[in-house]
Amino acid sequence: MDWNRVEGNWKQVKGKIKEQWGKLTDDDLDVIDGKRDQLEGKIQERYGYAKDQATKDVDDWYGRQTW
């Protein structure tokens, strides 16, 4: 499965994203709009993570999802 599924179902996925990364605001999620690079950037910004850590966290989260 590729990231297109997340982009295509962003409205439904936003809740799962907020469960995982509660520091992301609704405004952040609206700006991200399903774009992986935007998500990673906001995670870096809100949590102070390095890019590698944000990428790993998104990979781990994505791998745990049951679509």
Results as ranks from 00 to 15, higher is better:
45 E>A: 08
37 D>P: 00
8 G>T: 06
38 Q>W: 01
10 W>T: 10
65 Q>L: 15
28 D>W: 00
53 Q>L: 09
48 G>L: 09
37 D>Q: 05
25 T>W: 04
25 T>L: 07
53 Q>N: 10
32 I>H: 05
4 N>C: 04
6 V>L: 08
20 Q>Y: 00
33 D>N: 14
31 V>E: 14
46 R>S: 05
25 T>I: 04
57 D>W: 11
63 G>P: 03
56 K>Q: 15
14 K>S: 11
18 K>D: 02
35 K>H: 10
27 D>C: 00
58 V>S: 07
36 R>I: 08
59 D>V: 07
6 V>P: 01
15 G>N: 07
18 K>C: 03
20 Q>M: 08
17 I>T: 05
29 L>Q: 04
6 V>H: 02
39 L>P: 09
21 W>K: 07
15 G>C: 02
14 K>A: 12
64 R>Y: 01
67 W>S: 10
47 Y>Q: 08
13 V>T: 10
44 Q>R: 14
39 L>V: 05
33 D>P: 00
2 D>A: 03
56 K>G: 12
18 K>G: 03
53 Q>T: 14
22 G>K: 10
32 I>E: 06
13 V>W: 10
41 G>V: 00
67 W>C: 02
13 V>P: 06
18 K>R: 13
13 V>A: 12
41 G>Y: 07
5 R>V: 06
66 T>W: 05
40 E>G: 03
27 D>F: 00
6 V>A: 07
19 E>M: 08
13 V>K: 11
42 K>H: 13
63 G>I: 01
60 D>R: 09
32 I>K: 05
49 Y>P: 07
8 G>C: 03
45 E>Q: 14
6 V>E: 06
7 E>R: 15
47 Y>C: 08
20 Q>R: 14
53 Q>K: 13
57 D>N: 14
3 W>Q: 03
60 D>E: 13
40 E>N: 02
42 K>G: 06
66 T>C: 06
27 D>Q: 08
40 E>L: 01
17 I>K: 04
30 D>T: 14
23 K>P: 00
3 W>P: 02
54 A>G: 10
24 L>C: 03
55 T>S: 13
22 G>M: 03
62 Y>F: 15
48 G>K: 11
10 W>N: 11
58 V>K: 04
64 R>V: 00
46 R>G: 03
26 D>R: 01
23 K>N: 08
26 D>M: 01
44 Q>I: 08
16 K>G: 13
64 R>L: 08
56 K>T: 14
43 I>S: 05
43 I>T: 02
17 I>W: 03
25 T>Y: 04
3 W>E: 04
25 T>E: 07
24 L>G: 05
19 E>W: 00
3 W>L: 04
13 V>D: 06
2 D>V: 01
66 T>Q: 14
60 D>K: 11
51 K>I: 11
